[in-house]
Design a protein around this nucleic acid. Structure first.
Lengths: 135, 135
DNA sequence: TATGGACCCTGTAGTTGGTACAGGGTCAAG
DNA sequence: CTTGACCCTGTACCAACTACAGGGTCCATA
């Protein structure tokens, strides 16, 4: 029998067992067949599918986006432009996040650089956190 | 009377009313006095405190870190080194996040660049998402 | 004085993407 | 036959809010 237990499936993909069950609840993987003892019995295709999920999650796609990608991948005759579009939009979002973090980083670094020691009462960092008054 | 309603406090700091109540539940702001009609009555100091919270939140500090900063700020005679340390650790974390996102961005951009159109069946992007087999 | 609308109150549930039990059942080895 | 590793379901928890539902209050205007 080529069937995998959930533990094998999980360790083969670097996923936790609970996460696999969570993906099933979330509708990302179909409920597999069960053994006599009510254990989940996965097929090799399920391993492929879970790997796909892991990979796309690692690339920062949300579960909704992963679901969409899985659905698209299943329609093998359709044009793949939609995939490109989805991935490109995701890339743009990553770019926005990077830009936001860099702006924040610049601001925080400025605040920290202003520190000249002393007590809390005259701390420049805390001062920078209190917009109007010095308290 | 200088007391502010929760709505005034919220709009003066760009916060939602529910968020202010949430901060109270989370122990970031003390439960204020109440009016006869059981409305929260805030003092100007509360406005300062909420501004501080908003500012530090905007700089990416977690609520736990904000709590710590508020506690430190209250001990006006202590040395402010701890504040500097907390802020510096936070900056390092931001740097890690930026680095992670940039690595991810590079990888995703590579995947997208490989796209040559065609059907899902021979989509290079989907191929890059399926680690071993082509399915 | 009545009434309407803007505001406030508490309490609870939902969001994302899992993680962590509790309290059981199954399976294989020794 | 027992032990330990694994599996099952169901529920609760995390951050940091947000969004109601179902009520109460306040004040300006008709």
């Amino acid at each position: 029998m080529v069937a995998l237990t959930i533990g094998k499936l999980a360790s083969a993909t670097g996923t936790k067992v609970e996460t696999v069950r969570y993906y099933e609840r979330a509708g990302l993987i179909d409920p597999p067949a069960r053994t006599d003892g009510n254990y989940r019995a996965y097929r090799p295709e399920d391993l492929e599918r879970l790997r796909f999920i892991r990979r796309t999650r690692d690339l920062g796609f949300s579960l909704d986006e992963v679901r969409a990608l899985l659905n698209l991948a299943a329609q093998r005759d359709r044009d793949c432009g939609t995939v490109d579009e989805l991935a490109t939009r995701h890339l743009e979002e990553i770019d926005r996040k990077i830009a936001d973090l860099m702006a924040l980083r610049r601001e925080l670094a400025g605040v920290i650089a202003s520190c000249a020691g002393g007590t809390m009462a005259d701390c420049r960092i805390l001062g920078a956190f209190a917009p109007s008054a010095a308290s």
